[in-house]
Amino acid sequence: MTTPPEKLPTLSGSVPPVREWARTFAIGLCMGSADAVPGVSGGTIALIAGIYGRLIAMINALTPDRIITFLRSLTPLDGGFDFRGALYVFDEIDGWFGLALVAGVGTAVVLVTRAVHVLNESYPTLLFGFFFGLIAASAVVLLRELTVGSAFQAVAGVVGFAIAFLLSGPVAFLESGGLAVIFVAGAVAVSAMILPGISGSLLLVILGQYTFMSDTLSRFIDGLIAAVSGGSTATLVDDAVLVVTFIAGGLVGLFTVSRVVRRSLDRNRRATMTFLVALVVGALRAPIQEVGSEVGFSPDVVVAFAGAALVGAVFLLILDWYAVDLDLDSV
């Protein structure tokens, strides 16, 4: 960590202008909305918005040493509180940028998961048909940029497809849930959020936790509102445990799994991307499995599912056409 300069920053000199905050918050809203929907990647939105490099730099700057120094500066240890020293570390990790971005992402996730919760209860066929279209179109976009040039790369693709396809079906230990599954799901989903083309929510769908966590978060928000307004809070504690476990897993994933993926990309970029893209293709089983288990397929259901899938596919292809040409070699 860099040695603090003799002249430490002040709060007024550290806080960015309101316009910059608003722009970062808006980008966070777009990233959160994208990552809350399977098939669309928040990392791609960051790439489009021109903040991807800054986002990766911020994550890499969050080292254990800096975190410990920051926390110690805000406690009466080592000679008392050192607010300006803490502010210096906060500036080193681009904390104001991260704070505004996380606020935007969090707000979007809450809003989108609320919509998913309502749609899953009323229109599951249309919801998962739309997701199928998003995932299918995302797979097409990614496969278009992928070339397989070695046997190892081909094996990585087969393994990725097999893992996603098998986990997208009925899996006993995933269906049983439990805090361990929720923790791992959070770690995997959040680590994927920073990869262009790979959706964190898609991995939740593969793990069978997407609708469960959407419903849980919606109930948790309802419970918080009820606690303030004097309503029923019967499930608040149980839901809070699940949400906190997921967030804790996400934080661990951000500092562990995401860095493992980054090192894998650095060592063998093409094989790693082939594995990740194959996950997307294998995940196409998940929406079909959800509709089959919840509703069952009849001619009317098939038509509705296919129509919603077409809408989802067209939406993502239009986004890809007007947004950015994704170059997997730049990830």
Rank of each mutant, 00 (worst) to 15 (best):
S73E: 13
L99F: 11
V116I: 13
L119Q: 12
V116M: 08
A108V: 09
Y123W: 07
P124K: 06
V118Y: 11
D78Q: 12
D65N: 08
L87N: 04
R84G: 13
A86K: 09
V116F: 06
Y123N: 05
P76R: 11
A115R: 03
L62R: 02
T113Y: 05
L62E: 00
R66Q: 00
Y88W: 12
H117C: 08
G85W: 10
S122V: 11
A86E: 12
G129W: 10
F90Q: 08
F130S: 09
W96A: 07
L111D: 01
G129L: 10
F90K: 05
P76G: 10
R84P: 14
T75D: 08
N120A: 14
F81W: 13
D91T: 09
N120I: 07
V102C: 12
T63S: 07
E92Q: 15
G85Y: 11
P64M: 05
P124L: 02
V109Q: 02
G85K: 11
G104P: 09
F83G: 14
F90R: 06
V102M: 12
A86F: 10
T75Q: 14
V105D: 07
W96H: 08
F131S: 13
D91F: 03
A100R: 01
D78R: 12
F128I: 00
D94N: 15
L126T: 05
V109Y: 02
L111Y: 01
R114M: 01
A86C: 11
V112I: 10
